[in-house]
Write a protein that binds this DNA or RNA. Sequence first.
DNA 1: CGAAGCGGGTGACAGCTGTCATGCACGGGC
DNA 2: GCCCGTGCATGACAGCTGTCACCCGCTTCG
Lengths: 200, 200
Amino acid sequence: MTRIVIAEDQGLLRGALASLLRMEDGIEIAGEASDGREAWNMIRRDPPDVLVTDIEMPGMTGLELAAAIKRDGLKVRVLIVTTWARPGYLRRALEAGVSGYLLKDTPAEALAAAIRAVAAGERVIAPDLAAMAWEEADPLSDTERRLLRLAEAGLDSPAIADATGLARGTVRNYLHEAISKLGASNRIEAARLARAKGWL
Amino acid sequence: MTRIVIAEDQGLLRGALASLLRMEDGIEIAGEASDGREAWNMIRRDPPDVLVTDIEMPGMTGLELAAAIKRDGLKVRVLIVTTWARPGYLRRALEAGVSGYLLKDTPAEALAAAIRAVAAGERVIAPDLAAMAWEEADPLSDTERRLLRLAEAGLDSPAIADATGLARGTVRNYLHEAISKLGASNRIEAARLARAKGWL
DNA sequence: CGAAGCGGGTGACAGCTGTCATGCACGGGC
DNA sequence: GCCCGTGCATGACAGCTGTCACCCGCTTCG
């Protein structure tokens, strides 16, 4: 019997997945969590065989969960199920030692099979994404990433300078760096590109 | 027996919802569609009692589906199920004559109940949203909306002028209007605010 | 008819943005 | 000890942005 915990903040999907998986032989739902922290408490108290988790959740993200599990040496395999086909997410997931990464637009039948494969020690990566993992690494420095996030939110250079304690000119230098690294022609486009790759 | 069609582009959710609803008495799944156009063909060929649909889908959005159903006078009640708690979306949905609007983070058990209520001619609105429907209407003109979308994509004023055939100064005038209508301090913030409200 | 409103436009100005050259301190490597 | 990379900064300049005042042609309506 493979014991699983489902962590997913969308109630409808969480409930529907639970009812889908309850019909599968050999899979037992040990718990359902609606945010990352709840999932972490559940896992620490009674580690399941497999954690099926979303990435973007309140409290703790799925990637943070995977990292915490690895850090504490828990014997829980992690299967990420997310909307986002972003190379940056996949890369971080693999670095955090996850066993599987599926997209939410794969057919529902594939989920139980993926859970069984992961439980058996195999690695399951969404086919469209397997190739992307080795594509371009994140070229942004931490400072560039931080400033780009603020620019994305609509702050102008002086406001960003105030918010970060940097000089105005320095802010523009960092954004310039980010823009040219990303091949964009202004900060808006740069932020869009970086977000699409999962680097923000 | 209530016959329903499910239109939802995320395969996992679509499949899981189908399996959830298949266990309900009195509900029969007449079809599943993975994009708006497929759903429309399905509905026209053989109208179900209720259409359960996402909003953002390739081909045709759920709002367009609802409008098309209303235009052709089909006797299909529409239940929107979406991630987005945006007043603009809810308003447009109500104008298109939908019978229900649920968020994807409502508990799964509520879905079957909502479908039955809608089939019985009742109207079901997610409680958090009911109040928002009468909040601020979209203040943007069509031109403002169009230019804001281009600005959001990272085009600067000259590029937007080229793309729309307007003069550069005019582009700035429209964006200025949009910025001040929305109480933003630049085009980036304006685009973010408008998108958050569902006006873009 | 005339006034008002609307879509589209111009010109001007202060301030922001993108680009580049250049400077300086500091912490490694050799 | 010297050299280089890195992080942060400055100054300058062309071009873009936000704001405002004002113009024109075309409905629309009293």
